[in-house]
């Protein structure tokens, strides 16, 4: 019906958040990659880009599916289910259940990706430190 609008709405928020964080990072002197002597660490703004990519990409492809099924039309009110109150209620219910679940799952997967990348970065830092100790 219109479940993709929830992840699309989240994508708008995360894109604005990413731009703000990117601006803060650049003003703090960090470039796209924080390069230390030991290892390359990815800034948080680059990690939010992963979430943006999944949310925007997924929403775009789901919007296409809704056009395919005739649920999105090029004339007002653009969503066929928004035309009458009964269908609108069903649409809002679907947005509140499936739409929220979609946004939550994508965000949870992104959270796991960030967690794993943090572990990999820590491991890389540790192996760099170990190599330094061995040299000494």
């Amino acid at each position: 019906m219109a479940c993709f609008l929830i992840p699309a709405g989240e994508a708008v928020i995360t894109t604005i958040t990413q731009k703000i964080i990117e601006h803060k990072e650049s003003s703090a002197g960090k470039t796209t990659e924080e390069v230390s002597e030991k290892s390359v660490k990815m800034p948080f703004s680059a990690k939010i880009k992963w979430l943006n990519g999944m949310l925007w990409g997924g929403s775009a492809l789901l919007a296409f599916e809704h056009i395919w099924h005739g649920e999105i039309i090029p004339v007002f009110p653009f969503l066929t289910n928004a035309a009458n109150p009964e269908d609108a209620a069903a649409m809002l219910h679907e947005m509140g259940t499936a739409g929220v679940a979609m946004a939550a799952l994508v965000t949870a997967v992104w959270g796991a990706m960030v967690g794993i990348s943090h572990i990999i970065e820590k491991r890389s830092e540790k192996s760099d430190n170990d190599a330094e100790v061995e040299i000494k």
Binding site: C3, P7, G53, S59, L61, M102, V109
Partner: peptide
């Protein structure tokens, strides 16, 4: 890859 994974996760919920 992210675009297809995002859509896959959303369709999984569906």
């Amino acid at each position: 890859a992210l675009m297809f994974w995002g859509a896959s996760l959303m369709w999984l919920v569906d």
